[in-house]
Simulated scan of single mutants.
Amino acid sequence: MTMMNAIEWPEGYVPGFTENFCSNEVIVPGLTTAQVWPLLSHAQAWPGYYGNAANIRLHDGNGPELETGRRFSFETFGFPVEAEVVEYVAPADGRPGRIAWHGWAGEGDTRLDVHHAWLVEDLPGGRVRILTQETQKGKPAEDLAKAKPNPMINGHQDWLDGLVAAARKA
Rank of each mutant, 00 (worst) to 15 (best):
G138H: 01
L144R: 02
D122K: 00
V164C: 04
P149A: 12
P64M: 15
A141R: 08
L66V: 05
M1S: 11
L66C: 06
W118A: 05
K137A: 13
I27Y: 03
G108L: 03
W118L: 06
L144H: 10
F17M: 07
T132D: 03
G138D: 06
V26K: 13
Q133C: 04
F17T: 10
D122I: 02
A43S: 15
A53T: 10
G16K: 10
W46N: 03
I153M: 06
Q133V: 04
L160Y: 04
R95I: 04
A145S: 12
G12P: 07
V128K: 10
G155M: 04
M1C: 07
A100H: 07
G103T: 05
F72E: 00
P47T: 03
P151R: 00
N24Q: 12
G162F: 07
E8A: 12
S73I: 01
K148W: 04
T110W: 11
L31V: 04
L160V: 13
R57A: 14
W101T: 05
H115A: 06
H156Q: 14
A54T: 12
H59F: 12
P80C: 09
T32H: 02
W159S: 09
D113T: 14
Y13A: 14
V86E: 05
F21C: 05
D158E: 13
Y88A: 15
T135P: 12
T76P: 05
W46L: 12
A170N: 15
K169I: 11
P10A: 09
Y88M: 15
A167Y: 13
P38K: 01
A90M: 02
A166V: 00
R111Q: 12
V85Y: 05
E19H: 09
F17V: 01
V89G: 00
W101A: 10
A90D: 08
W9Y: 01
